[in-house]
Design a protein around this nucleic acid. Structure first.
Length: 601
RNA sequence: UGCCCGAUGGUGUAAUGGUAGCACGAACGACUCUGACUCGUUCUGUCUAGGUUCGAGUCCUAGUCGGGCAGCCA
């Protein structure tokens, strides 16, 4: 995996969540600012997650706090170890060089220790200071992220505490009955007939649920709140369900599993999280988040939930469900297809982590459901790559051009600038020979108006070499152009007397005898419409040209390109080596993004 | 027709009762051995109606429009 070679991190402007955190810091409300990023390991991370990651790690970073990566893995039916690995890799890559010092982690295999505070159950993970932990573990390999499933013991003990307090009960309603009893948003629900069981009976039944006496869905543990609440999430929400399934992380110890609303707030508490940021859809859940914590009479400061709007970029699809469909229907090659907005797809495409961070930070954090123009992302990518990518000459769709006044076999070495954006740019040698390739787009037998490139009788400069004049167009019997015959004005080379001669057009080229072949994958937007999610069927608005593969002619220095290198093929765009490349035999470059083109029409 | 949330140019966002600003985008121009970059100019905005106030994008009321909520998913 290429390391991200990053420019300094952008600092995020303030937003309503940061304002709240700053106030809490001023009040010293929490001993430490702790945030968390809590993905469920049931799919790959995408750029929408990057927004949450940058928010949570950014806040931690700004206050010397930490951000825990916690797998929200309370549903054994949906989660897999494969995703734990990809998510962990994606996050490490995304925050590398920016906020890795804030990544909370714990010694491998450790579980929360049980504490009793004032006779009441409490849990903690031990020291949350990452530098403190670092001294205890030998490197990252001995550390691991947090798992909600590591708290199943603690969560279960808290549930018993709720039962003892008369705040939770075992309910025998079937799933269908539960739904009926819940009512509707505009219609109150009604009490379960099992709502007033005694504490002793609830304790007994919950114990037997846990012991595996009952089949799936036979019983649930529910919070006793208010079946008539206008907020449906407060109508005696389910806390535990029975699932006779092994868990990828917790093993086969359990057959009762907690639900999100119950597990999340307590997981936050257990980890000492101070600020729990999630997306807007959880606003109606917030009273439940608070209810659970407040009814347990917990000794340490309680975490609070804050909600912000998801990222919705144009010309792409973000939900796991939709991305999965693109993968399954083979519209794309896999979860890391460079056309996908997954973190692994963006990485494979050659987009630097810093550009992703810059973009999601620039979008801001608000409570307004907005749609962000993908052009903002593209701008962030170009801005980053413009300063970091090495310039190279490459011809994607070659047409042969013969410089008739250069003898065959002669090699004229030209100095090419590696990156004009550098303070002290370095150069490399490129070979100019009798036969070269130029881009077929850079020649027009019948040029449109204001065409600066090569045309009959016209002159252009070969970048870093000299000005040439087109003398003759050679065609085959079928009338197709086979080669262009030109005269090279060798005294217009750099350092020569007429080096300063001006022509309107400058084009890129490579020597036909000093070049290498490579497969180049030209990626474009996956969809033709700004909001494919709004289409009747997004498969019908696919961009048929989202991938075009060509065999290109590259300057020889590209033969030693490394996976971590970023290149600008001059006048074309930014490119990076694809992970499927092999050292000698097979070179594949992905086009990360084109250069801005104000001439195209 | 229950409850909750939101509304600032084409898009995103700032202004925390005191000059509506920034970025993206678009158009035009300058520069250019990348039609890139850079630089310059221009473009378009506080949902509506009342109210409070010396003063309202900001506070209040009503309305309009948009979003969310009824998984034993997260």
């Amino acid at each position: 995996m290429p390391e991200s070679s990053d420019s300094p991190a952008p600092s995020a402007p303030s937003d309503f969540i940061r304002d709240i955190v700053a106030q809490h810091v001023a009040e010293k409300r929490y001993p430490k600012i702790v945030t968390r990023f809590p993905p469920e390991p049931n799919g790959y991370l995408h750029i929408g997650h990057a927004k949450s990651i940058c928010l949570n790690f950014g806040i931690a970073r700004e206050h010397g706090g930490i951000c825990n990566l916690r797998f929200d893995d309370t549903n054994p039916a949906k989660e897999e170890i494969e995703y734990v690995e990809s998510i962990t890799n994606d996050i490490r890559w995304l925050i590398a060089g920016w906020a890795d010092q804030c990544l909370g982690f714990k010694p491998k295999g450790s579980h929360p220790d049980k504490l009793t505070t004032n006779g009441k159950p409490d849990y903690y993970l031990g020291p949350v200071d990452p530098s403190g932990l670092r001294s205890q573990v030998s490197g990252l390999s001995a550390a691991e992220p947090f798992f909600a499933s590591d708290y199943f013991d603690a969560l279960h003990a808290f549930a018993i505490e709720l039962i003892k307090r008369g705040k939770a009960y075992v309910c025998d309603l079937t799933p269908k009955e539960t739904e009926e009893y819940r009512g509707a948003p505009d219609k109150p629900g009604k009490d379960s007939p099992f709502r007033n069981r005694s504490v002793a009976e609830n304790l007994d039944l919950f114990g037997r649920m846990t012991a595996g006496e009952f089949p799936d869905a036979a019983r649930t543990l529910r919070a006793k709140i208010d079946m008539a609440s206008p907020n449906v999430w407060l109508r005696d929400p389910l806390l535990y369900r029975i699932r006779h399934l092994p868990h990828y992380h917790a093993g086969d110890k359990w057959c009762v599993y907690p639900l999100y609303d119950y597990a999340h707030c307590l997981s936050d508490y257990i980890e000492g999280v101070s600020h729990s940021a999630c997306s807007l859809e959880f606003v109606p859940h917030r009273p439940l988040y608070d209810w659970i914590l407040e009814n347990l009479d917990l000794p340490r400061p309680l975490p609070r939930q804050y909600e912000f709007a998801k990222l919705v970029p144009t010309y792409t699809l973000l939900s796991k469900r939709n991305i999965l469909r693109l993968v399954q229907e083979k519209v794309v090659a896999g979860w890391d297809d460079p056309r996908l907005p997954t973190i692994s797809g963006l990485r494979r495409r050659g987009i630097p982590a810093s550009a992703i961070r810059k973009f999601v930070i620039s979008v801001g954090v608000t409570t307004f459901n907005s749609v962000t123009d993908i052009a903002v992302f593209e701008h962030a990518i170009r801005e980053e790559l413009n300063t970091t990518a090495a310039r190279r000459l490459a011809v994607l769709k070659p047409i042969r051009l013969v410089l008739t006044n250069i003898p065959a076999g002669e090699v004229i070495e030209c100095d090419a600038t590696n990156n004009p954006q550098d303070e002290n740019p370095t150069t490399r040698k490129v070979a100019l020979t009798r036969e070269v390739f130029i881009e077929s787009d850079d020649f027009a037998e019948v040029p449109p108006p204001k065409y600066f490139r090569l045309k009959p009788g016209g002159e252009v400069r070969l970048k870093y070499a000299c000005i040439i004049k087109l003398d003759e167009i050679v065609k085959n019997a079928a009338g197709a152009i086979t080669e262009l015959r030109c005269t090279a004005q060798l005294d217009t080379r750099s350092g020569q007397p007429n080096a300063d001669k001006k022509v309107k057009g400058t084009i890129h080229w490579v020597s036909a005898t000093h070049c290498i072949d490579a497969e180049v994958r030209l990626y474009d937007r996956l969809f033709t419409v700004a909001e494919p999610g709004a289409a009747e069927d997004f498969l019908k608005v696919l961009n048929p040209k989202s991938l075009e593969t060509v065999v290109a002619k590259l300057e020889v220095s590209l033969a030693t390109a490394k996976a971590s290198d970023r290149f600008q093929f001059e006048r074309l765009g930014y490119f990076a080596l694809d992970q499927d490349s092999t050292p000698d035999s097979r070179r594949i470059f992905n086009r990360t993004i084109t250069l801005k083109d104000t001439w195209a029409k």
